[in-house]
């Protein structure tokens, strides 16, 4: 096990040469190829999901206008994406700050639930405590198969919390999850490339919510003016 193969990642880098400049040149070439691949997936995905993002954004904007809040959650790298979501919605670079929370940040809650019951319930149990009708549960996964996300969506559905999921590959179990209303799938089989594009999807979703939220508000203003 002293040698691990990354040949499938970088098929044209061979064996054991001890020539640093040549390794560096190969690495730079590989990085460039991966970069371009990621850029293509990002653009293709944003185009593919464009209509669906608009629908989800409209649902979310209505929730926020009704006083709802957003709960974001995921495991590993997707947990950090959940933190990104919470930070972006509450402290946006522009636009309206909107109420959002990550369900992965409280280590006391996470360790208590994991220790007493199991990691499968860490998100569902928190939604049981916090979720209200008109809130939004946003779960992120690259595989779409995380048990704790599926349980969270089920719990959310029971409580009238709207459900949105980000998944990869072919959507995994999330694609077939009855309690998940909206599943945004980044179609790739590389976890890294999926995650990179999911970050873009999250940002596009946030921007669409901002646009939708403003338009609803101005629509309201317009109708008030019309009534006056």
């Amino acid at each position: 096990m002293s040698r691990e193969s990354t040949d499938f990642l970088y098929p044209f880098i061979e064996g054991d040469e001890d020539d640093a400049p040549s390794l560096l040149a190969d690495l730079a070439t590989s990085a460039g190829a991966k970069w371009d691949q990621s850029s293509r997936l990002r653009l293709e995905t944003l185009h593919l999901l464009d209509a669906q993002l608009g629908e989800v954004a409209a649902v979310m904007a209505r929730c926020f206008e009704g006083g709802g809040q957003l709960f974001a959650f995921g495991n590993g790298g997707s947990a950090t994406d959940a933190d990104d979501v919470a930070q972006l919605f509450t402290s946006p670079p522009w636009g309206e700050p909107l109420p959002a929370r990550s369900l992965v940040t409280d280590h006391a809650v996470l360790s208590a639930l994991s220790n007493d019951i199991g990691f499968d319930v860490v998100f569902s149990r928190q939604l049981e405590a916090h979720g209200r009708p008109g809130d939004i549960a946003l779960g992120l996964s690259t595989s779409g198969n995380s048990e704790n996300l599926l349980r969270a969506f089920a719990q959310a559905a029971r409580r009238g919390v709207r459900t949105v999921g980000l998944s990869g590959y072919d959507g995994g179990r999330m694609a077939d999850c009855e309690e998940l209303e909206h599943c945004l799938v980044v179609r790739s089989d590389s976890v890294h490339r999926i995650q990179e594009t999911q970050a873009a999807v999250v940002h596009a979703l946030w921007a669409a919510v901002q646009a939708e939220y403003r338009s609803e508000a101005s629509h309201e203003n317009a109708s008030h003016e019309g009534a006056a």
Partner: peptide, 22 residues
């Protein structure tokens, strides 16, 4: 921010490639 994710993913991938060149 999106491209930062791409950059550190590449750092990880390339670092592991380097491990093969003992």
């Amino acid at each position: 921010s999106e491209l930062f994710v791409r950059m550190y993913h590449l750092l990880w991938e390339l670092t592991h490639v380097c491990f093969e060149h003992t």
